[in-house]
């Protein structure tokens, strides 16, 4: 809007420069988050780790599978550019750790995204339609919940060919259940709110109501849960790798590196130390960020 707005009666109603811009709840939350030092530090560290994991392997002079027989199990800072040292096969640990970050973060993100898409849609539909549809949809979730999830993924991984893409999907397909429950509960309470009744009174279409009224209002808890799901998924991937069911050599993930490292931690402690540092730093940061987001997005829980 650039021109002054004039009343039909010719009276000046308002000039564009007088309009006061509002602060949306998102902007408000962002301000609150920025005040939370732990959350901001976590966010920065996470970005750093992500950037390193994505671009690090490209600029490293070694490939993650490159073996250097002459330099097997070199401690850190002892030979050439092997900052973190090498493993028994002479593979550069820094490269392998960063490459492992790609896989671990990738699993976390993609699986969570899968969970997000299935969970939000399923939960929103179930909560909004309500009634018998809701009952049936939620019983299905209950049944799926009852399947022992670790065993399910283990069976899946051993029947099929330990495909890494399958791993992403398998974890995501299990994680969406909780997301669906959260969204459904939120939508259920939201759709009884008066502003949804007001939207119905305006004769708005159901689809409009879901997208303009319901989803924006459930996004807060969804974002928080998402940030807390990523570390859960990464942890699960590491357990699978630890059991030898996850990523297969020569590829690496933080989980598989920690597994290898822990087997030799008496003799070559750095093999455990570095991947474990990266992994736990990421988990810590994600949890702090999630907590910060929860405080920022739900002003009632914050202290003012």
């Amino acid at each position: 809007m650039t021109d002054p707005v004039i009343n039909p009666s010719g009276k000046l109603l308002l000039r564009p420069e007088d309009i006061e811009q509002g602060t949306s709840l998102w902007k408000d939350a962002w301000h609150r988050l920025r005040k939370n030092r732990m959350a901001v530090a976590s966010l920065i560290i996470l970005i750093l780790i992500t950037v390193l994991s994505i671009f690090g392997p490209m600029v490293m002079p070694y490939e993650y599978q490159d073996q250097n027989q002459g330099l097997g199990a070199t401690p850190p800072l002892q030979a050439g550019a092997h900052l973190f040292g090498t493993d028994e096969l002479g593979r550069d640990l820094l490269t392998r750790t960063l490459h492992g970050g790609r896989v671990s973060l990738g699993v976390g993100l993609i699986a969570t995204l899968t969970a997000l898409i299935i969970g939000v849609t399923y939960g929103a539909v179930s909560g909004y339609l309500g009634g018998r549809t809701d009952v049936v949809m939620m019983r299905i979730v209950d049944i799926l919940y009852a399947i022992p999830f670790t065993i399910f993924v283990i069976v899946l991984m051993s029947v099929f060919d330990r495909d890494i893409k399958l791993l992403f999907l398998a974890i995501g397909a299990v994680e969406w259940l909780t997301m669906a429950r959260i969204v459904r509960a939120q939508v259920l309470s939201l759709s009884k709110q008066e502003f949804v009744e007001a939207a119905l009174s305006l004769g708005l279409h159901r689809v409009t109501i879901i997208f303009r009224y319901l989803i924006p209002n459930v996004l807060g808890p969804v974002i928080v849960y998402t940030t807390l799901t990523i570390p859960a998924v990464m942890l699960f991937e590491s357990i699978l790798s630890f059991l030898g069911l996850g990523v297969q050599a020569p590829m690496s993930s933080w989980g598989s590196l920690i597994k290898d490292g822990s087997e030799k931690m008496d003799v070559y402690p750095w093999l455990l130390l570095f991947p474990a540092m990266f992994f736990s730093a990421t988990l810590f940061c994600l949890n702090f960020l999630g907590d910060g987001l929860r405080d920022a997005l739900d002003p009632k829980s914050s202290k003012d």
Binding site: G22, L25, Q193, F195, A198, S201, L202, G203, R212
Partner: peptide
């Protein structure tokens, strides 16, 4: 037809904190 007809009758609710979508500007 009901959705069309609804425009002719509108409602004002009790709780002004619940009757407006918090994510939409005036």
């Amino acid at each position: 037809e009901i959705r069309r007809e609804r425009l002719n009758f509108q409602m004002v609710f009790q709780d002004p904190y619940a009757s407006l979508n918090p994510r939409m500007t005036v």
